[in-house]
């Protein structure tokens, strides 16, 4: 069985005439250790899909399973525990806590974990080392660059070694050089065994993934909405003339 399974998931907001179908009848699977990109226009439903995958937004119908756990059958607090143990989030706007240092921001997911202060600190320092931020532990978010903030966000997402990393436009606010650094970092984490689902507008970034799910008007397009909605070989151009080459 696949590590992540979304079965016929729909999400609607509002009711009556004001009903909006954010996503509709979405099915896909992700294997453990895969790197999958989710692409689509603004308002297509990518972020809704990511929030459902992130165990934060119960679907209106359908089933979402991770590691044989029916996520939305868990109670609210159990689902919180699930998020802590299974999922690392990298948000587009970094969402670092401004009054905590870089090290403390990275330690946040460990706050409620039973471990000594020293152990938590060591784990956070290791995570910062992985993203290349050793030496900047005591700086505040306001004292580091955008690229460094994104690295801190990645370090925070991986500090408790979650099996799944969710990234929502992780390079949306970065220049191209930093974008590639961050994408290389995500690819490295994936190679080390982390399953990654990444929402992006950027085809260049999507090219780092092994597989792309394209969402349009709340549905997965191409591949009849099945798991392999859009699976591209890395050497084949994603788009037509002028399209970007997917990276190996």
């Amino acid at each position: 069985m696949s590590y992540i399974r979304a079965e016929n998931i729909s999400k609607q907001y509002g009711n009556g005439d004001a009903t909006v179908m954010a996503i509709q009848d979405i099915d896909f699977t992700v294997e453990s250790g895969e790197f999958v990109s989710i692409m689509g226009e603004s308002g297509a439903g990518k972020s809704t899909l990511l929030s459902i995958v992130g165990a934060m937004n119960p679907p209106s119908s359908g089933k979402f399973v991770v590691d044989e756990i029916d996520v939305y059958h868990l109670g609210s607090e159990k689902r919180t525990d699930f998020r802590r143990e299974f999922i690392g989030f990298v948000f587009q706007s970094f969402h670092l806590v401004p009054y905590l240092t870089v090290l403390e921001n990275v330690m946040l997911p460990l706050t409620t974990v039973k471990a000594t202060k020293k152990r938590k600190r060591t784990l956070a320092e290791e995570a910062l080392d992985q993203v290349g931020l050793t030496g900047k532990e005591q700086r505040l978010p306001s004292q580091i660059s955008g690229g460094e903030k994104e690295r801190v966000a990645v370090a925070r997402a991986i500090v408790n070694d979650p099996p799944v990393l969710l990234a929502d436009e992780p390079t949306g606010n970065l220049d191209s050089k930093t974008t590639h650094e961050i994408m290389d970092l995500l690819q490295r984490l994936n190679q080390e065994g982390t399953t990654i689902l990444m929402v992006t507008h950027s085809q260049d970034c999507a090219a780092y993934a092994e597989r792309i799910l394209r969402v349009s008007d709340g549905r997965l397009i191409e591949g009849e909405g099945l798991v392999e909605a859009l699976c591209l070989d890395r050497k084949i151009p994603l788009t037509g003339a002028g399209g970007l080459m997917l990276r190996a």
Partner: peptide, 9 residues
């Protein structure tokens, strides 16, 4: 953010 990264209510 706290809730998203696993802080209970």
């Amino acid at each position: 953010i706290f809730r998203a990264i696993g802080f209970r209510k």
